[in-house]
Design a protein around this nucleic acid. Structure first.
Lengths: 349, 349
DNA sequence: CTGAAAGCGCTTACAG
DNA sequence: CTGAAAGCGCTTACAG
């Protein structure tokens, strides 16, 4: 064997004077050869610097790569820095790791428009969030399993949370103390991109297109029950769930004259709510006395602070675990709804 | 072709009456066949549901998978939820994505002790942080490139930040206002696991084993310059950079009688500093009047709050970009130091 | 328990 | 510009 080349299983077999099958079995199927021979092969392999079968060849031969791809609707940069997506990923990683699989990260928003060539190497796909384009999904190998999280794909197992009841419950809690001027800050709810006040001019996405529409329906149900006409409640919208996009919208809301400024902000995410909290504090507004704020998600950042955020906790880690178990065939592939939990903090007691 | 089986390049070639080489070239090397034939092949492929060459076979044949593995010293659960690691990963992902590569996530702390079989599929490895065990690294294919981030591997390109000068600069800033009772909260500095006060009994890791030792050296240099004996400054340690581990240690510090309670906390990370901020606020302590706090890292959570954290910003995204560029051969493989930036917030003006 | 051989689906050097 | 053929490094069904 030329020393420049990496040692192969065949080289090792020749070196030891055994068949390639025995080498393979020594690494993969201990019951297929005598313990003594196996011991000898493993020892010699280590001594000669053969670290085990090549994964590229193995995956071609077996048809499986032990790789599960997670396809994120958002960019990888956003997803990796978003607490909710990160929790989902860690739940997935935990289960995959425990079962000898690894996680490949892909985004529905690639650099180019084309799918990465290595995409079809994965044994299965977990798709998180509504994809900007469905062409990518249609190009995936049809026989490989697919699980959708937070949105629906026809004929696919999906995992959701109970968005409408969850936001109903938090809105109902907030409305126990009647607000003078309630307001709602939505996330990507309008068909026309809008960072600001939502007007009659705007068309809203359906619940099929954005989970925040379901959340809004829950909030509206609570308003009606409290005798408040939802149409009378001003709404704002932000396009991105990041501080720098939320901040100017919220600044406009808070910088209104006091008689117009809301005293209750129902926010569609903790990120929006935390941005509102920061801007309120910077303006010397007292939370919750001058302004009550609620979020949605239950991320750590909202709970490890003073005042703590009143919010709905969704267990994204468990979502990820379940998605991974479905993909690996450890849980039945079905339509699954996870429940949420109301967390009452000091931002809206 | 039996309809149950996925279509292969060979099937398609037979179907169209052309050679397999032409099919391959149609997808990979447009210059190797006439535009007309290529067009026909691509159209027919789409019509017949052939989505392109199989990545498993391609990677065996070419020897490259277009996959770069990131090996994280911490668990995936920790890394994915840590702002600094997430920024590094997003920097890596950004560059890989732009160059047709994808990112596989691995941890040095696997479930079992054994390396995943698919580990050797990657074309290159970015290793982040000192590995709990070096065996995993020694089993990687020797001919594939390796880049180390935040620690050293012999004969390998590495990326660091200027830990000592960075913490010197922030400590010097803090000491411009002479503290009565300064204190330092370290991260994983002691050889014996310790969540609490560091005493003479503890052995400290060398700078080779933990970046926080270098940071401590910078802090000590600033102390000496200000005429403070470093040995007189009490030090605490935490083992994990997460709220729940930091909180009890910091609570003990803050719950001391006022005449012993520090009025300046130099923290080795923003996570520690933010935990201190929260606990101080919960106790009604005024930051910075009663207590000044500094961090290290410059994560968003410390800047998008009131009071903003005084800290040192390290550009983890750029670290990730550079690591990815080195792995892909787009940047020279060398020992690289990235500089940091002092951020002066209200937590220590 | 062990070995000889086929073949997973591609890419590429080479001949025409 | 096109095609026939070798071979990447394995695993596994099968024969002995």
């Amino acid at each position: 064997m030329p020393p420049s080349r990496r040692m192969t299983l065949k080289d090792l077999a020749a070196e030891l004077g055994v068949s390639t099958a025995s080498i393979s079995n020594a690494f993969n199927r201990p019951d297929q050869l005598s313990p003594m021979l196996r011991e000898r092969i493993l020892n010699e392999a280590k001594r000669l610097g053969y670290a085990g079968p090549d994964a590229k060849a193995r995956s071609l031969r077996t048809g499986r790569s032990q790789i599960i791809a997670v396809i994120l609707a958002e960019s990888l940069t956003y997803s990796l820095n978003d607490a909710v997506a990160s929790e989902l990923l860690s739940g997935i990683a935990e289960v995959l790791d425990a079962h000898g699989h690894t996680m490949l990260l892909l985004s529905g928003r690639q650099h180019g428009s084309e799918t990465h060539g290595s995409t079809n190497m994965a044994d299965g796909y977990i798709v998180y969030g509504l994809m900007p384009s469905m062409t990518m999904l249609s190009e995936l190998p049809a026989q490989n399993p697919l699980v959708a999280v937070d949105f629906d794909i026809e004929h696919c197992p999906t995992i959701h949370i109970d968005n409408e009841p969850a936001s109903y419950s938090i809105a109902r809690h907030a409305l126990l103390t009647p607000p003078k001027r309630p307001a709602v800050i939505n996330l990507r709810l309008t068909k026309q991109p809008c960072n600001g006040r939502i007007t009659d001019e705007h068309d809203l996405f359906s619940a099929h297109h954005t989970i925040t529409r379901s959340r809004l329906m829950g909030i509206h149900r609570a308003f009606k029950e409290s005798g408040i006409d939802p149409a009378s409640v001003p709404m704002w919208n932000v396009e991105e769930n990041i501080h720098d996009v939320c901040a100017p919208v919220i600044a406009d809301i808070l910088d209104q004259p006091e008689e117009h400024r809301p005293d209750l902000l129902l926010c569609m995410s903790d990120r929006i709510a935390l941005t509102a909290l920061t801007l309120a504090e910077q303006r010397g507004l007292c939370v919750p006395d001058d302004l009550r704020i609620t979020g949605f998600d239950g991320i750590a950042e909202g709970q490890y602070r003073a005042p703590r955020l009143t919010t709905v906790r969704q267990d994204s880690i468990e979502k990820g675990r379940l998605a991974a178990r479905m993909i690996l065939g450890l849980s039945p592939k079905e339509q699954k709804y996870l429940s949420t939990e109301l967390l009452i903090g000091e931002s809206c007691p």
